[in-house]
């Protein structure tokens, strides 16, 4: 080995080390994120989010969540007739999809939890999501969420758990599906001018 080439040995070795270091670190980060997403998926499954946020359909073996619409909320094309009056021992009504809900609070529709910017949680920050689950208010500061969204139970999830759920929701296929506004019982509207 000539003198000149020997001069390069250390820098090249150094560079190699750097490259190695960063590549392992990057995959390290990637897998950390992946394990967070996996944890989030497990939490979303065990907390039954899909029971209400994925529309149900009639499959070969009976009713099942429609996995092609994973967590995308009440199907936009399914326009519901007015809910039966909320009274008597059967106070609460649900659609066959388990995404539209009638009760003393009016009518609510399960929301689109995918990261579509226009119709889902695409514009929400992680903080907006965590605060929604903690306070039961839209984006943590807006109107109160209506039943049956069980936020009073979910508010006890830890920050870490909620962050994982959020990471998972941001990782699933984006579905554009516009959810209708809820209907308040006898809501006062502004006078038309």
């Amino acid at each position: 080995m000539g003198r000149a080439s020997r001069k390069f040995v250390f820098p090249v070795l150094g560079l190699l080390c750097l490259v190695l270091f960063y590549s392992t670190r990057a995959t390290g980060e990637g897998s950390a994120n992946q394990s967070r997403i996996d944890h989030g998926r497990q939490l979303v499954l065990t907390h039954g989010c899909g029971d209400c946020h994925t529309p149900w359909k009639l499959g070969a073996n009976g009713p099942e969540p429609d996995s092609s619409r994973l967590l995308s909320g009440h199907p936009q094309e399914l326009v519901m007739p007015p809910a039966p009056p909320a009274q008597g021992p059967w106070l609460v009504n649900a659609s066959a999809t388990f995404t539209a809900w009638g009760g003393p609070w009016g009518v609510s529709f399960s929301k689109n939890l995918t990261s579509d910017k226009e119709t889902g949680l695409g514009n929400w920050t992680e903080e907006n999501f965590i605060q929604t689950m903690r306070t039961g208010r839209e984006m943590g500061k807006g109107r109160m969420l209506l039943p049956p969204m069980p936020w009073p139970s979910y508010q006890h999830l830890t920050d870490e758990e909620l962050k994982s759920m959020y990471a998972y929701l941001m990782s699933i296929p984006v579905i554009k599906n516009k959810i209708p506004d809820p209907v308040a019982p006898s809501a006062p509207e502004p006078a038309k001018k």
Binding site: R137, E138, R143, D181, P182
Partner: peptide
Amino acid sequence: IYRMQTRNPIRQMPP
């Protein structure tokens, strides 16, 4: 203006 002018709890501003 719409959201200032309604007190429908789902839409009103401030909420």
